[in-house]
Design a binder for these strands. Structure first.
Length: 428
RNA sequence: GGAGAGGUGGCCGAGUGGCCGAAGGCGCUCCCCUGCUAAGGGAGUAUAGGGUUUAUAGCUCUAUCGAGGGUUCGAAUCCCUCCCUCUCCGCCA
């Protein structure tokens, strides 16, 4: 959520910055509502002040043993008028906040102009795509050849966009999770965290998935008696970042660095026909997520660091990748700046997203009321939040299958995973 | 599932209809005193929003005592619903 002050003071400037990401701010509608709000709020507050002062004098008169009948007559009817004003004001404020909740974040100055992914800027590359002296397979063919990756069984059990893994492949999948968690907690200083996979709507509003993107989420049917509503998490970002919702952090406790492994559930509504083959786009996948909660002045440095932490995993696995600075038109709703890590997939002869690292600045923090006490002002101020995948496990497995395949249809085990695989150096 | 007790500021904790945005304590900030340390004295110290202001400060108004409704001229306090925490019993991976 953006600061409401921007809408009162710099709405044109704000609209211009939002236009960069292709979002058209309806300034006339907002200005009109703002004007109405101002009048209504002033009037309502004046009435409240009147009621308060008159009620006070009634109290005094009563204590002094005076006749309060004439005073009661004065406030007669005030309550009803006030109630009407309060109601219209609250309706108007809800209308305004509903608009505000759907306005995306403002892109950072360092975010390049552009409309879509074609305008993203390559920042750097690491590693050389290998050349193969045999006909290479994609991960689906390799996995099926190993007899360890099965989509048909998953269709039977659940439906499309699910998979089953077995044997060494299932183990490598788990090994990846262990390796990533260990590296981030032992080497990069993140605090390993276990979180709920079912969350409430407040949490999703906090990180920005709601109200705008409900169709992307799996929703658990509302509990009949309690009316309790749960959503399956689309990313660990939601439960982990919401750890600091409604809190005031001490300056000396910042930055907070969390790492969590969770499954992620996405409806993929609107991506029919995209990546239907293979495990690139699934309804359920595992991810190791990095989240940082930092002082505002540190957030852009923290984004660089966090991105490097995700890159370290790719480097350890010796997987070639490139880093993209997403253009204004391609960054996510809540993001102020995003780096995507794209890993080389020989089977597709292309780089594919395997991690997305974003600085949200105070956008999520404002929605969450996540604050810290700034020693300079001694006031609570909004923190900045950063997160990134470190990494998407399924896609990492895909890239290992494709990059580490051998001429005889087997797959080498990356060196750093071997100790997690009982010393195995090759599977198949 | 049954029975009970609670939810108040950064923290602890008082407050059962009116000068209560909230005593007291802790913590924190500033000042004084003390030649170090320890201790003592004084003052200040919630958040959000509106108005005023070029803006900040200031001033002022409003809201907020788990959340939402209600009663009342007036609610932290009374009533209703919900959420959460704790204790005991039962059940359970």
């Amino acid at each position: 959520m953006l600061d409401q002050k921007l809408f009162r003071q710099n709405i044109e400037e704000t609209a211009a910055q939002l236009a960069r990401r292709g979002y058209q701010l309806n300034t006339t509608a907002i200005l009109a509502l703002e004007e109405e709000r101002k009048v209504l709020q002033e009037k309502t507050q004046a009435l409240q002040a009147e009621r308060n002062s008159k009620s006070k004098s009634i109290g005094k008169a009563k204590a002094a043993g005076e006749d309060i009948q004439p005073l009661l007559k004065e406030v007669d009817g005030l309550g009803d008028i006030l109630k009407q004003f309060e109601q219209s004001l609250s309706e108007l404020q809800h209308k305004l906040s509903a608009i505000l909740m759907e306005v995306p974040n403002i892109p950072h100055i360092s975010v390049p102009n552009g409309k879509d992914e074609n305008d993203n800027q390559e920042v750097r590359r690491w590693g050389e795509p290998k050349s193969y002296d045999f006909d290479i397979l994609d991960h689906v063919a390799i996995g099926e050849k190993l007899g360890a990756l099965n989509f048909e069984t998953a269709v039977k059990i659940s439906g499309s966009r699910f998979m089953t893994l077995s044997g060494d492949l299932a183990r490598m999948h788990r090994a990846l999770i262990q390796f990533m968690l260990n590296t981030h907690s032992d080497v990069h200083g993140y605090n390993e965290t276990y979180v709920p996979y079912l969350v409430n709507a407040d949490s999703l509003r906090g990180t920005g998935q709601l109200p705008k993107f409900e169709e992307d989420l799996f929703v658990i049917q509302k509990h009949e008696e309690t009316g309790q509503q749960f959503y399956l998490i689309p990313t660990a970002e939601v439960p982990v970042t919401n750890i600091v919702r409604d809190t005031i952090q001490l300056s000396e406790d910042l930055p907070l660095k969390f790492v969590a492994h969770t499954p992620c559930f996405r409806s993929e509504a609107g991506s029919y026909g995209r990546d239907t083959r293979g495990m690139i786009r699934q309804h359920q996948f595992e991810k190791v997520e990095l989240v940082q909660v930092v002082r505002p002045e540190d957030s852009h440095k923290a984004l660089e660091e966090l991105t490097a932490h995700a890159e370290a995993i790719l480097q350890a696995l010796k997987l070639p990748y490139r880093v993209m600075n997403l253009c204004a038109g391609d960054i996510g709703f809540s993001s102020c700046k995003t780096y995507d890590l794209e890993v080389w997939l020989p089977g597709q002869e292309t780089y594919r997203e395997i991690s997305s690292c974003s600085n949200f600045e105070d956008f999520q923090a404002r929605r969450m009321k996540a604050r810290w006490r700034n020693p300079e002002s001694s006031k609570p101020e909004l923190v900045h939040t950063i997160n990134g995948s470190g990494l998407a496990v399924g896609r990492t497995l895909v890239s290992i299958l494709e990059n580490y395949q051998t001429a005889d249809g087997k797959v080498e085990v990356p060196e750093v995973l071997q100790s997690y695989m009982g010393g195995k150096t090759v599977i198949g």
